[in-house]
Deep mutational scan, measured.
Amino acid sequence: MADQLTEEQIAEFKEAFSLFDKDGDGTITTKELGTVMRSLGQNPTEAELQDMINEVDADGNGTIDFPEFLTMMARKMKDTDSEEEIREAFRVFDKDGNGYISAAELRHVMTNLGEKLTDEEVDEMIREADIDGDGQVNYEEFVQMMTAK
């Protein structure tokens, strides 16, 4: 299944994987998964984290390695993001709930994920998604960005 991913997608997933893999040992533990999910405003229980890991832990060693992570991402993409997942993601970014993602809100979430971005990089990300040019990202623009192939 992971063989249907483009090189660009694999590179993006590698970057995402390293955000989860806090200690850089090449595997994601339940603790690391929990840290990232909490930084995104989720509050999973230990059991939920274990279930999430077990779902993709092909070799049964209790952690997720990069090939397992790729399989999980490929699977998720095949079920292409349901509207509800996209709306949920939008809410994570839209901290003040005004229906727009500002540069400050984007920077806040990315920083929580451990991504240190310059102001230019954040502005560039907003510009790429900002179709109507108002300097922020509304829900429609967010959907376009998330579903762009």
Rank of each mutant, 00 (worst) to 15 (best):
G60A: 01
K78M: 00
A74H: 07
D57W: 14
F142H: 06
E121Y: 10
Q144T: 06
N98P: 03
L49W: 09
E141N: 01
I28M: 14
L106F: 08
G60E: 00
E48A: 04
E8N: 15
A2W: 03
K14H: 02
A148D: 06
D57K: 08
D81A: 14
T63N: 05
G97K: 15
A47T: 12
I64G: 08
V109S: 05
V36A: 11
R91I: 03
R107A: 14
N138A: 07
F17S: 07
T111K: 05
L33R: 04
A58V: 13
T30F: 07
D21K: 02
M37G: 00
D59G: 11
S82H: 14
D130C: 08
T30K: 02
E121M: 01
D119T: 15
V36E: 11
D123G: 12
E68N: 10
M145Q: 13
A47G: 10
I101K: 00
T29M: 05
Y139L: 00
T147I: 13
K22V: 09
G24H: 06
D21A: 03
Q9G: 08
R107H: 11
D51Q: 08
M52P: 11
Q42A: 01
A129F: 01
Q9M: 01
L117H: 01
T80D: 07
Y139A: 01
H108D: 14
L106P: 01
T30E: 06
I28P: 00
I28G: 01
T147C: 06
L117S: 12
E105Y: 06
T71A: 13
T29K: 13
G97C: 09
F93S: 01
S39W: 15
K31N: 11
R87S: 07
E124Y: 03
D65Q: 09
A104L: 06
G99F: 06
E83R: 01
T71V: 06
D3H: 06
D130E: 10
A47Q: 05
L33N: 00
D3K: 13
R107T: 00
T6S: 13
L19S: 06
D130R: 03
L117T: 03
P44L: 12
K31E: 14
N98Q: 03
D65F: 05
M110T: 10
G62L: 08
D79V: 08
I53N: 04
T35S: 11
L117M: 00
G133N: 09
D57G: 12
Q136D: 05
P44F: 08
F13M: 00
E124R: 11
M77E: 04
A103P: 07
D96H: 05
R87Y: 12
